[in-house]
Computed example of a mutant assay.
Amino acid sequence: MAPAHRDRHPLTPVAPPEVLRDFYTPEEVGTLFGVVRANAPWKLVLAHHFASAEEYFAVSGARDRSPDAGLADFVAPVFRGYLAREGAVLYPELHDLYFSRKLLEPVLRMHKARYGFAHHMLFNLCGPSRSFDAGHFDSGNWRGVSSVNAPIWLMSVMAKSGLFDAWEVKSGQVITYFYDSDVDGGFTYWPEGPERAPSRLVAPFRNTAVLSDNSRMFHRREANGPRDRRDLPALTMGSLLTADGDDAWVVRDGDTEIARFAHRDSRSLFHYTALVFEDLADVTRYLDHTDDLTFDKVFDVLIADLKARGVRFSEPSDPMTDRDFIALLTDVHAMAPREYPAHAPLDVPAA
């Protein structure tokens, strides 16, 4: 099946982000943060998703990167936990919210879709922090290939290549932000593709939801928190976030406390994703697996494309983990934002 033709940049959302203010009720907010506090510790976002710098660069929008850069060079105190996955609610208190029309219907509306279901729900929470994120987009979904069975780096390459659009499963996000400060901390996004100028949503965020098509849009968290507290030199890939009482958050590496911050100095979000379908035939094709990709098919397509481009390379025995092959695909399908807002520049790791 040939990929769908696109007249616009492959990473352009179906619609610009839409702000939905005061999204959760006070009771829902209390339940969400209660689950996060009660079930700590939580791992860093990077620790969840990447095994090497090559995998990170496949997702990150960084144009210029040091050949000696390692994954640890981009560590920031941004922690993540999953609240629900693939229709399974991991914390019973969130059952009704995860399956609510309140979350699903905005995504259906954005895509003008008839059917859909809850996919993932997670949170991010960070203390005072610089932002090394040069811009990224969320994992897409294809029939047979998704975040359930595939690494993020591969899904990033698939999306950028445009070679797999015929198998794409449409998705959308409702992301609700909490950052009660006007000291930086905004949300930068590129609604017309990464080659065009960015837009911003400016903090403070007080239960501020954003309806977005993040798997088709570069975006980034801006630096946040008191500026004199944003560097944590002792932070490592094994650092964990824990709660202390009703207000404090603590970052530990093993038994060593390396940072402590009040909730008012944190920036957090609750991230919901739904998969949506235009008609019943689209739903059936997805559920019955009648037109799924396999990993063999994915790598056959990517390798055939490299050869058609005249790229010289050695075919890897294990393309899923071969770091040189991952780096090659990243370079061939490279794309990244060209500019950043003057008031939200990109932080660069110390040499």
Results as ranks from 00 to 15, higher is better:
Trp190His: 04
Val332Thr: 12
His333Trp: 15
Arg221Thr: 12
Ile175Ala: 13
Ala203Gly: 07
Ile175Pro: 00
Val35Glu: 13
His95Glu: 15
Asp182Arg: 15
Asp322Tyr: 10
Ser139Arg: 02
Gly135Thr: 09
Arg309Met: 10
Ala274Met: 01
Val183Gly: 01
Ala248Thr: 09
Leu90Asn: 06
His289Ala: 14
Gly245Pro: 02
Val19Ile: 13
Leu103His: 09
Asp213Met: 05
Lys112Asn: 11
Thr256Met: 10
Thr208Ile: 12
Ser199Val: 02
His111Arg: 07
Ala72Glu: 15
Gly225Thr: 00
Arg338Trp: 09
Asp64Lys: 14
Pro17Asp: 11
His5Leu: 07
Asp291Glu: 13
Tyr98Leu: 03
Val301His: 05
Phe187Ser: 03
Gly162Phe: 05
Glu257Ile: 08
Arg101Met: 06
Asp331Glu: 07
Val36Asn: 05
Pro233Lys: 02
Ala15Tyr: 13
Arg21Pro: 15
Ser212Gly: 05
Ala203Leu: 02
Phe313Trp: 12
Val250Ala: 07
Trp249Ile: 01
Gly135Ala: 09
Leu269Val: 13
Gly127Gln: 10
Ala304Pro: 03
Ala15Val: 11
Arg264Gly: 14
Asp213Phe: 03
Ala118His: 00
Ala243His: 10
Gln173Arg: 01
Arg85Lys: 05
Asp68Ser: 12
Val276Cys: 06
Ala197Ile: 00
His119Arg: 07
Ser147Pro: 01
Gly172Phe: 02
Pro191Val: 11
Gly245Met: 12
Tyr340Thr: 00
Ala58Thr: 04
Ser60Phe: 00
Leu329Val: 12
Leu269Ile: 11
Gly116Asn: 05
Asp324Phe: 08
Met155Asp: 01
Phe205Trp: 13
Lys307Asp: 10
Ala53Thr: 10
Val332Lys: 00
Arg63Trp: 15
Val298Gln: 11
Phe295Lys: 15
Leu125Ile: 14
Ser266Asn: 05
Pro26Glu: 15
Ala84Lys: 06
Ser131Arg: 00
Asp228Asn: 10
Glu278Gly: 01
Ser199Met: 09
His119Asn: 11
Asp255Pro: 04
Thr188Pro: 06
Val36Leu: 12
Gly87Gln: 10
Trp153Thr: 01
Phe99Gly: 08
Phe187Ala: 00
Gly185Trp: 04
Asp7Ser: 07
Asp247Ile: 03
Val78His: 13
Ala197Asn: 02
Phe313Gly: 12
Leu280Gly: 08
Ala304Leu: 07
Pro316His: 12
Leu20Ala: 14
Asn141Met: 01
Asp22Glu: 14
Glu28His: 02
Ala47Gly: 15
Ala134Cys: 09
Arg143His: 02
Arg114Gly: 05
Pro16Lys: 08
His48Met: 10
Leu201Val: 09
Asp255Ile: 03
Pro349Gly: 04
Phe74Cys: 03
Leu104Phe: 06
His289Tyr: 04
Asp165Ile: 02
Tyr24Asn: 06
Lys160Thr: 04
Arg260Asn: 05
Ala243Cys: 10
Phe299Trp: 14
Phe99Met: 09
Val183Thr: 11
Asp180Phe: 05
Gly186Lys: 04
Ala47Trp: 07
Glu18Pro: 03
Val107Asp: 04
Ala159Thr: 15
Pro226His: 01
Arg312Ser: 15
Arg267Gln: 06
His263Gln: 13
His48Ser: 14
Leu287Pro: 00
Gly127Ala: 09
